[in-house]
Design a binder for these strands. Structure first.
Lengths: 214, 214
DNA sequence: ACCTGAACACCGTTCAAGT
DNA sequence: ACCTGAACACCGTTCAAGT
């Protein structure tokens, strides 16, 4: 492609493109070299090896995700706003986030947001270990949720019923489900992640902050 | 090892061992063959290829995880008990669970527990879409949490401070953190996942079930 | 300092051939 | 029906050699 000298930055850029579009497995040193129009071994000179190339990509992602400003009036809504923003940011880079997580760097990604969360927990009246627990609960909830969502997206599809004849494709028809057809229908539908996320987050935060008023 | 005829079951068993101990990446067709004392190609005859071998392993895991009986008196404690049991089960097979999840089969693993959750939500007075949302919120919370935990275990270690000099290894020292040293200390310590899980779960369930009494 | 091709040791998979 | 070795196309990585 480019006839200028190869730089480390170019390598990273091309690698980032590949990973973003087709996932980390699609990133092969040879393929990357071909894409850049150089010999495979040049890449090694610039980034060491595949593993440190991925590390560099992850590092980039971590630094890209900056601070997040809360919006809203009450601490609860402000915390939820931070959570939703975080979800949005993470969601935009599913592959990268999975890699960040594999490398145990999730905490790093959360440091900026943590500061905001601590502040809100504090103004809500939470102190000490209890406040820390609340902050961590929110963090875990966000990361966990996004991980579930990402895997769901990256995976082929939830039980497309291709291979074996499933006993029940939809939710189990228990006695209580039969008594509440609306519930059964709702569970048979695929979940709306955005909605579910906000609802769970609100529920969680409400309980956590309620402890501050005792 | 065994001089008897090779069976599909033996292949699966050996593969399961390998994955449980050293993760899916450690499972190579050639290594597996060596371990079983056969030619690589024999394995192909029994299980098709690597991908369907992993699929079979996942299928096994999904079937292994049976129904979970709630314990406790109130719906809230019973739901939390189911969640904790689920966490325990998932936690025992981190690699397999990650694979289940990658394949988008998480819902399948949750079907038995879902039934129990639906029942409890119902006796707590939740109906229809709201009950479904509560059940799903609990499911997502459990899976998400376990995924976060698993990655944390399987990953090398959280920012061991080896490579680059970090600006701050521990939590950020904000104004509020300085005012609340107990909080700062709590955040600097690594989280106790079991404790955090139970606390978040209780908080979430409490809020979710509170909607049933309106 | 930067780039190259050849070579090594590993993959998963196929296929014709054996019994 | 079950197992085998040879072979193919792919990896990541190293290394001596170029400029």
């Amino acid at each position: 492609m480019s006839r200028t000298v190869l730089t480390r930055e170019q390598v990273l850029e091309a690698a980032d493109d590949l990973v973003r579009q087709h996932g980390p497995d699609a990133l092969t040193m040879r393929g990357l070299a071909a894409r850049l129009g150089t010999a495979v071994t040049s890449i090694y000179w610039h980034v060491g090896n595949r593993e440190s190339l991925l590390d560099a990509l992850v590092e980039r992602t971590v630094e890209e995700m900056g601070a997040i400003q809360p919006t809203g009036r009450t601490p609860a809504t402000r915390i939820v706003s931070v959570a939703r923003r975080l979800r949005g940011e993470l969601h935009a880079r599913p592959h990268l986030i999975a890699m960040v997580h594999e490398r145990g760097l999730t905490e790093r990604v959360f440091l900026p947001a943590q500061r905001a969360l601590v502040r809100e927990a504090h103004t809500a009246g939470l102190r000490g270990a209890r406040a820390a627990e609340a902050v961590r609960a929110v963090q875990f909830q966000v990361v966990g949720f996004v991980l579930v969502e990402c895997a769901r997206e990256l995976a082929p599809a939830e039980t497309p019923g291709r291979e074996r004849p499933r006993k029940t494709t939809s939710a189990p028809k228990t006695a209580s489900a039969r008594k509440d057809p609306a519930l059964a229908r709702a569970l048979a539908r695929p979940a709306d992640p955005e909605r579910l996320f906000t609802a769970s987050m609100r529920a969680l935060v409400k309980s956590l902050l309620a402890q501050g008023n005792t």
